[in-house]
Structure formats: structure tokens, C-alpha cells
Nucleic acid binder design. Structure first.
Lengths: 249, 249
DNA sequence: ATGCTGTTGTTATGATCCTACAAACGCCAC
DNA sequence: GTGGCGTTTGTAGGATCATAACAACAGCAT
């Protein structure tokens, strides 16, 4: 079994198939169609198991069964299989989240707990940044040395807020970052205060109004970890501290 | 535990979460945020299990962890959670099918085996019908008594083929069906031959060129089962038999 | 027809892994 | 100590994996 095949089987498993189901499906795509014996020959799935596995795959809509002797199996087209799986996913997701939305606490009023949260992983930090920016009402300040941390979604969110009258400022030592974001309508791009030391491991900084802040760091292996707080006294104080140090320049 | 909640948990499980993970996630959406004890109180998940389960959820990007004592957990927004799960799904599906496409047999030339295939389930029959229609080069004949079996995708496929010069004919006793499909550009709608008995359990019939055929039946509980064949001698003969009987009228 | 051989489809039986569930433990604040 | 917190360890159950045995059947030589 090749490395690629193992990876594909793992992926199928994460999509909800068993390892046998994945192997049989892949084998049938290779074969075009075949009997239980054909499948068993090209995989390490015991022949006696192929029947029940194929039956299960048929129920999922991934293959068709030919009533004959010997029974022949035929996979659906790749497009059809993808569509079937995607529809199933969307249906399940809808079911799951419909209920969650029903019971979700009415947390309309922002929680003013003294909470500071930790997020690990670049994409999740991306999401949180966009989320915080989208709630800005007065001003937004965003800074990073790393061009990789400027995503299209962030650009859209910043432009959107700027259009809504929010003062949007981007700060970076990196020319590319300033050019990219500064060219957006209503967004101001600046160099950072000269007195600020640029720690090698600093990731990004985001300040929203006077009560939302996010700071991230990048570790040696490139992983990003962020802390953030919104609507808390902690956030306000931290913001004041950071901005007070800038006044000294 | 309510029926709705069980259904939601089942749905989450089919999305790849464990039952505990689903319960903790739902509970945190209800609570807004909370400690392990809070979660354990509102669910039947043992407190000692909440920690590891929450850690697993954090890795999936479904909640954030507050480093404090006691540890507090906070779910990501519902939108964010859905997006995260959807991205994960698309990524896995891409991985899985990339490999399958690589190794898929080059079955460019249609297999001319004497194969007749069985398909169960209305949606799968829908898919197969559209697939067969899309391969028509000369003519298409489609018939059904049941308006439910006429899907938008079918309409598009028929119209598309008609535009490509294929002779498309729709046959039905049902006025609605004839109206719907007959109004499409290039599609002819007719009543069925009068000598044909309309079995109560017949579903649809599709004839493509002179070598593709699909017949379906609807059982007592509304389930549809179809047989089809394409490019086989069997298909040609069956088509001739069916059409010969029409000539007698 | 009889017996032999190989295949097919079904069923039964361990082995193995993961989840669910429970309980005990060390730690710290008070 | 006492009580709450977070971690670790252990056990039972279920699903999947893997192997084996079985009856039914077709082909074939005797």
C-alpha cells in the first residue's frame, strides 16, 4: 500500500467511512466494476467481508449492485460520489446546528466578564481577528510584521468597517503589508512607532475601539497563538498601556 | 434529554464528533462560557472527562480555552463552527478523491459488457437519469406518471441536450409533467400510447439513443428502485421490444 | 448419475481498537 | 485538614477488523 493510498483511506475515514469501505470503494474505482473476488484480490479486504461492506456502501449511495451470479459491484461516478457525500454533510450540519441555535443562550448583551481567551492555530486566529474587526464601531488598529497574516477576509472586513465610518489604521514595518492594506478605501497605513521593539516572535496586534484587543505570537515551528479580550476592564487597561507607551515617542 | 437534543447529538456524531464532544459543545453554546464543572452540571458528561473532551474540541477549532483557574471554556460562534467544519470536510474530500482520480481506471471507451445495474433510492435514480441523459447524442425519450420524479436537474439536462440537436421527447399521462417539460425549448411532450397499460407501481422510463435504458418502479412505501443498462446488447434489445409494442397501436 | 473440485455467498468466532464511564490521585487555596 | 480542581489510570461495552467454517452450486471427469 502506497503512502498516498493510506492518506486517501485516512481521509475517507474522517469522512465517516470505515477503512474497509474506503478500500473497497477505491478498488472499484480502479477496476471500473468487479465481483467480490476481484475486489478482494486488489485489496487486503477478505472476500467474505466484501459483501457486507459493499452493501453498506450501496446504502450510502456510493456504488450500485448488479443482481447476478456472481454479484457485480460498480461505483458511482466520482462527481456523483462527491455530491452525495456533500449533501449528506450539509444535511447533518443543518440538523446539528438548527438545534444549537434554538438553545443558544440569548447573549445579546456582550458578556462583560474579566475574561482573556487563548486561541491556538493560525486559521482560528484569522477568524477571531475578522470577528473582532467586524464588531468595531469607532476605530480599528491592526499591525503585523508578517505578510502571511494578512488574509483576504481581513482586507474585506477592514474595508467594510472603513466604509461604515470606522477609523481604520494599519501599522507595519513591512512595505508589502502597508501597500496591500493601505490601498483599501478609507484605510490608513503607517510605520510603527520607532520606540517599539519588534520582537522576533511577535505575530499581530489588533485594537478595536477602546475595549477589544488581540495579541499573537509565532513560535519556532511557525504555530501562532493569540490572546484576546473584548469588553473587559482587562482589555481597556491593556490598550491604554500599549498606547501610552506610544505617546512617548 | 429531549428528542431534539438526541437528534442533534446524533447529527454531530455523523459529522465526526464523539457523543461527549457534541454534548460539551452544545452545553457551552447554551452557557455562553463556563468551567468544566458548569459543563458537567448541565450535561451527563463526567467532570473529569470534560477536560480532555474540551481539549479535543479546541484542536478542532470549535472552542477556545481560557488559561485561568479554574479553566474556562468558550465556544466559537455558530457561524465560525460551521465554517470550520465545512472547510475540514472539503479538505478531507479533496484529499480522498484526488487519489481516487489518480488511480481511476481509464475507462474512456464505454464498457460494452452485458451489464444491467440496479439502483435503490430516489435521489440516486435521479442522478443516474441525469447522467444518462447527458450522454445522449441522438435522441432521448423520458416518461413518468409521477410529477415528483421531475427534478430541476433533469429539466436542465433535457434542455441542454435539446439545444445540442438531440431529439427530446417527454411522455406522460400527467398534465403537469407535460406542461413543465414540454415548455422547455426543443422538448416535445406527448401522451403515452393508448395500448400501454399504466401499472400502478411504474416509476419512470428513459431511453437514450438506441442503447441506453432505465426503468424504475415505486414500492408500497414510496421507495424507488431502478434498473438500467447502457451500451449493452441487452439494452438495445429491450428498447426494441418496448418500442415495437408501441408500433402496434 | 456419481463423485470430485473450485467458487460463491452466508454466518460464526476471536482479536483489536476506541469510546464511554468510573474512580482514585496529587495539587493548591483556604 | 477540607474541598474543589485537573490529571491519571482502569474497566466494560461496542464496533471494526481478521479468520474460519459452512451450505449451495456449477463444471467436469468418470
Amino acid at each position: 500500500m502506497t503512502r498516498d493510498e493510506s492518506a486517501a483511506i485516512d481521509a475517507f475515514e474522517r469522512l465517516g467511512l470505515t477503512s474497509y469501505e474506503a478500500k473497497v470503494f477505491i478498488a472499484l474505482q480502479q477496476l471500473g466494476s468487479g465481483t467480490a473476488r476481484d475486489v478482494a484480490r486488489t485489496t487486503d479486504v477478505p472476500r467474505s467481508q466484501v459483501y457486507s461492506v459493499a452493501e453498506s456502501l450501496e446504502k450510502r449511495g456510493l456504488l450500485a449492485v448488479q443482481q447476478a451470479s456472481p454479484i457485480r459491484y460498480r461505483p458511482v461516478s466520482i462527481d456523483e460520489a462527491q455530491t452525495t457525500l456533500r449533501n449528506r454533510f450539509e444535511r447533518e450540519q443543518e440538523r446539528a446546528f438548527d438545534y444549537v441555535e434554538q438553545v443558544k443562550r440569548d447573549s445579546v448583551e456582550e458578556e462583560t466578564q474579566e475574561d482573556i481567551w487563548t486561541i491556538r492555530g493560525r486559521e482560528r486566529v484569522d477568524d477571531r481577528v475578522v470577528d473582532l474587526v467586524s464588531n468595531a464601531e469607532d476605530r480599528v488598529l491592526f499591525g503585523t510584521r508578517l505578510p502571511d497574516l494578512v488574509t483576504p477576509a481581513l482586507g474585506e472586513a477592514l474595508e467594510n468597517r472603513a466604509a461604515a465610518g470606522v477609523a481604520v489604521t494599519v501599522v507595519s514595518r513591512d512595505d508589502g503589508v502597508r501597500d496591500r492594506l493601505g490601498s483599501l478605501e478609507g484605510v490608513t497605513a503607517d510605520l510603527p512607532p520607532t520606540n517599539r521593539e519588534d520582537d522576533e516572535r511577535s505575530g499581530r496586534i489588533l485594537i478595536v475601539d477602546d475595549d477589544g484587543i488581540l495579541l499573537s505570537v509565532v513560535d519556532d515551528s511557525g504555530g501562532e497563538t493569540a490572546i484576546w479580550s473584548s469588553g473587559s476592564l482587562f482589555a481597556s487597561v491593556l490598550i491604554q498601556l500599549i498606547e501610552a507607551s506610544d505617546e512617548l515617542r
